[in-house]
Design a protein around this nucleic acid. Structure first.
Lengths: 257, 257
DNA sequence: ACCATAATTTGGTACGACCAAACTTTAGGG
DNA sequence: CCCTAAAGTTTGGTCGTACCAAATTATGGT
């Protein structure tokens, strides 16, 4: 009953090494592999969601030790090009705009926790969305208008269900990010959600509160329908500022400007 | 002439292991170390720009093998928390907003090279800057105005020196990103520079071209001085669209919308 | 065909070695 | 006594091997 065959990962390496245009033997052989796999991923040779070859295979394929392969894999993982659940085969992830967001997550975490991190981020959100509603007011196409109306309706219907309201709330704002038809904006929206959400989640919610927010949404939407950029901007600003104040008061019992 | 003392990395590990609240022995021990060092960096226990302890020290300190320490280091490196030049001691890098940019670099590289990557990114820049000039027109403080004037002047003086003009051009736009007094904006500006620059650098420059650009800057600045948001927006839009067209024509000899 | 079980693969971690480059100490020469 | 060159030591990069446990695949019985 031979349970596990001991690794037989000898030979090959050394021999093949002679062939592989060696990176001068001075450090960072992993980078070579990273670049190589990177190319294969973007070129589609390694399809999205497909598993990466086994480490021991890559090892012989690149004529290096598993150590190096392993380093390359963690590097790729950290760059967001592959998903590396603990004991599973790494999964290829073709990078998109969201990849960057996901990637920045850890660092943003630190930045938010210090000084005015959250405030700064939130301010940029307000800044962006103000510009977005202006854009929407001036250039929204009928499809956009339709989406906005539908999102608004869904939002209204869920006033009594705070969980659902939260979702439709997000969806409403999400429509704004789609107006420019630039895939970067939805990604940015996602970023705001994942980075700001933690501070929002624990905020007490209630139908009354939801109603207030819905009315704000309504005001914004109507201003857009009327093609009134100024009004839309104003309504949006008021809405987001109010939301911020609400959260701020909830979290900071004491003073502080 | 004993050249190198052979590594003596025995003992310790196993023993200390009993103490270290072991991550269930199932995968990802490196993460533990990553978190730990991460904390030390943000807390300042490991000052910015200071070298990380030697791998062999960390190894005994955490009671793991060098393998794991090594993985943790590459992870931290990829997350941008430490700088890891090939054969040197890793240097601690306290994360800032620019860290994120630097970090996203590799992925953005891919995204830009496909489809309308550059166009999409550029469009967001136009979008942001339009909002920025509006903001500046409405809320710029005297200090901002002063900076803007000075930047404009420097820009004018360097019309004959394309290299210098390029720099003052950037500086001029940079002032706009400083108006909101939110550190995220300058970081975003940097991002645009590093990601869009490659497409700009090889663009032919000339005093004539510079003059045109300077006049655009002048128009923008004046609109801001006059607190005319609409005019500023319009001037900025025209400026950036023209620049884009210029580059597009330069690069795409053939048609394509 | 279908599921429980055994066998094999594969990722996670450990150990020890060796090299070459980086860093430090030491020994001379001015 | 300072400065430079040589010798010595540390340290990161890579290799090879080994073992475990979880995943995955084969396999055999119902």
């Amino acid at each position: 009953m031979k349970r596990h065959a001991p690794d037989k990962q000898t030979s090959a390496a050394q021999l093949v090494n002679q062939t592989s245009t060696d990176t001068t033997r001075t450090g960072r052989a992993a980078d070579e592999i990273v670049r190589h796999i990177e190319k294969k991923i973007v070129s589609g040779a390694l399809p999205d969601r497909s598993p990466l070859p086994a480490e021991r295979d890559l090892m012989t394929q690149f004529g290096t030790s598993r150590t190096v392969v392993r380093e390359a894999i963690t590097a790729l993982s950290n760059r967001g090009l592959i998903e590396n659940r603990p004991r599973f085969r790494p999964i290829v992830r073709k990078p998109g705009y969201e990849t960057i967001i996901r990637n920045a997550d850890s660092i943003v975490g630190h930045l938010l926790s210090e000084n005015h991190g959250v405030k700064n981020l939130y301010d940029t959100r307000v800044f962006i969305e103000r510009a977005l509603v202006r854009e929407a007011a001036l250039n929204a196409q009928t499809a956009d208008i339709r989406r906005l109306k539908s999102a608004l309706l869904a939002n209204e219907k869920s006033i009594d269900d705070s969980t659902l309201f939260y979702e439709t709330d997000i969806a409403f704002h999400g429509v704004l990010y789609e107006v420019p038809r630039n895939p970067i904006f939805p990604a940015v929206h996602q970023a705001y959600l994942s980075w700001l959400a933690p501070h929002w989640r624990k905020m007490p919610r209630s139908p009354e509160r939801n109603l207030v927010n819905f009315k704000s949404h309504q005001a914004i939407a109507e201003a857009i329908f009327e093609r009134d950029a100024e009004a839309a901007d104003e309504a949006l600003t008021r809405h987001l500022h109010a939301a911020w104040e609400y959260v701020r008061v909830t979290f900071e019992p004491e003073e502080s400007d």
